[in-house]
Computed example of a mutant assay.
Amino acid sequence: MSDNELEDGLMAATARFDRAMARLDQSVKNLGTRMRQHNRIEVDTQRLVQERARLATELDKASARAKRLDDSAHDVSRRLVEAMETVRHVLAKAE
């Protein structure tokens, strides 16, 4: 093998090595980007889970309040009917 062939082989090997290192460097950068994106997604997911829990609690409270209001409205309606019947009964006796 001549010195030129050896030098050409060495240059080709160096070029392949440099390309491989550049691909490895790009892969490391891409992995870092994907890891940061994954971490942001994890943080966003946790925030959404906490928000969902808070909203579920608020919904439960609002539902309980709505039931109490509905029960109160039903009770008031029943009492009004009783009062109207009493007034009718009193008026009927007065005639």
Rank of each mutant, 00 (worst) to 15 (best):
M1A: 00
S2M: 01
D3Q: 09
N4R: 14
E5F: 00
E5S: 02
D8S: 07
D8M: 11
G9R: 04
G9Q: 00
L10T: 10
L10S: 09
L10P: 01
M11Q: 11
A13H: 02
T14D: 04
T14Q: 14
R16Y: 05
R16H: 12
R16A: 14
F17L: 13
F17H: 15
R19F: 02
L24I: 01
Q26E: 03
S27A: 08
S27K: 03
K29G: 03
K29S: 06
K29P: 07
N30R: 02
L31S: 12
L31Q: 14
G32H: 00
G32C: 01
T33Q: 05
T33R: 02
T33G: 01
R34I: 07
M35D: 14
R36Q: 04
Q37V: 04
N39R: 14
R40L: 09
R40I: 08
I41N: 12
I41K: 12
I41H: 09
E42Q: 04
E42F: 03
V43Q: 01
V43S: 04
V43P: 01
D44P: 02
T45K: 02
T45P: 00
T45S: 10
Q46R: 15
R47I: 13
R47G: 08
R47W: 14
R47M: 11
R47D: 15
R47H: 15
L48D: 01
V49A: 05
V49G: 05
V49Y: 03
Q50T: 07
E51S: 00
R52H: 04
R52G: 08
R52C: 06
R54G: 04
R54T: 15
R54N: 06
L55E: 00
L55C: 05
L55G: 01
E58M: 02
E58L: 03
L59I: 10
D60W: 03
K61R: 15
A62Y: 02
S63A: 07
A64K: 06
R65I: 12
R65E: 09
R65Q: 10
A66F: 00
A66Q: 06
K67S: 08
R68F: 11
R68N: 03
D70H: 12
D71G: 00
D71V: 07
S72N: 09
S72P: 00
A73D: 06
A73K: 07
H74P: 01
H74Q: 14
D75W: 09
D75K: 05
V76A: 09
V76C: 05
S77A: 13
R79E: 10
R79G: 05
R79P: 01
L80I: 14
L80N: 09
A83R: 06
M84Y: 06
M84D: 14
M84K: 12
E85S: 08
T86F: 02
T86Y: 13
T86W: 08
T86S: 14
V87N: 03
V87K: 07
R88T: 08
H89Q: 13
H89F: 11
V90R: 13
L91G: 03
L91V: 00
L91M: 05
A92H: 07
A92T: 07
K93G: 11
A94C: 05
A94D: 10
E95I: 04
E95M: 14
E95C: 11
E95T: 12
E95L: 13
